[in-house]
Design a protein around this nucleic acid. Structure first.
Lengths: 169, 169
DNA sequence: TAAGAATAGTTACATTTGAAACCATTTCTG
DNA sequence: CAGAAATGGTTTCAAATGTAACTATTCTTA
């Protein structure tokens, strides 16, 4: 797949020449976002493949590791991953099937389930995390701390703008 | 689906307290990106629904409109949309089925196909574009021109960092 | 405290998308 | 110029993910 942004930019430029009223810089910005996201997702899935993981399974393991007492409900995982509960059920099936996670009923609330890392799952994520962190540092190596802080600020501001902008449901 | 970023941030904070060496600000930045993207995609799909469109069909119509002579090959569309040729075939099927696009064989190169807007497709996209532009302006209303320019610069810089970082294929 | 509402997880079904294989055509190259 | 390689489009198959319906349990409230 070709990830050349110029196809889009040229098109947008031609429309802007024909029709008045396009907020061109912001249209480009929204679209640029798709390109960067696509690349980000692809690149990390590539890097995780060598460990038998993808961004969902990796993040799930990391979130269970980060939980108190090594226990996490599927619903919380669903929130942390921005994934449907359906998908988290399936994800848990996979992780249990791979022997990285155990699934036990919760005694306090019998509707719930508790996901925990098995020793093998814990070992895996503790190997993978430092490798991924190193690569994240590589990825951002040309950014100054000030640029990183500003990027963070702009992203959160964009998120707020989008939420205000949601269609009422 | 809950789009609360704090689930992730809390988890990442706990891991950082346990394991040394996490570039926390950049880890958060990468993840924040997923959240913003998800929201962006959702919101615009919501807004396009009232016209019977989604972000793919909308962008396809816009790209054909922007093409020279109102003609565009599926392959070019695939590049502009960052979508597989498989998917563009299907997209074209839909658009032709809805009566918005016509599909004709190309006389110069008989491997190719030419997608053009029908009068009805042209009418639709000319109605939708100004509406969407207005909403994009709303979405970005709190951003100064300097912030927009800086955001653009940072996104392109991030894209470059990611491309250098790709696994050799 | 009993009935209704809400929550947790799963299942069945549908949607979206891409990879790989395939055919037709065009371009490259020895 | 003939065979090999590349390109354009489609089809087949598979992977990923979501919605809605469903069961079991817990919470709310009249």
């Amino acid at each position: 797949m070709n990830l050349d942004f110029t196809y889009f930019e040229n098109g947008i430029g031609r429309i802007s020449g024909q029709l008045p009223g396009m907020p061109q810089d912001r249209v480009v910005l929204n679209r640029l976002f798709f390109y960067v996201f696509k690349e980000l997702d692809d690149v990390y899935n590539q890097h995780l493949l060598e460990f038998g993981l993808n961004s969902s399974t990796f993040l799930a393991l990391a979130m269970i590791l980060s939980s108190e007492d090594n226990r996490l409900n599927p619903s919380h995982l669903s929130d942390a991953l921005i994934a449907s509960r359906t998908n988290v059920t399936r994800l848990a099936d996979d992780l249990v099937g791979s022997g990285w996670v155990s699934r036990k009923p919760c005694t306090q609330d019998r509707r719930r389930v508790e996901l925990s890392l098995t020793p093998s799952g814990r070992k895996l994520i503790l190997v993978v995390l430092p490798v991924i962190w190193q690569r994240i540092e590589q990825q951002w190596i040309d950014f100054s701390p000030a640029e990183i802080a500003e990027f963070d600020r702009l992203l959160r501001k964009m998120l707020e703008g989008l939420r205000r902008f949601r269609v009422a449901s």
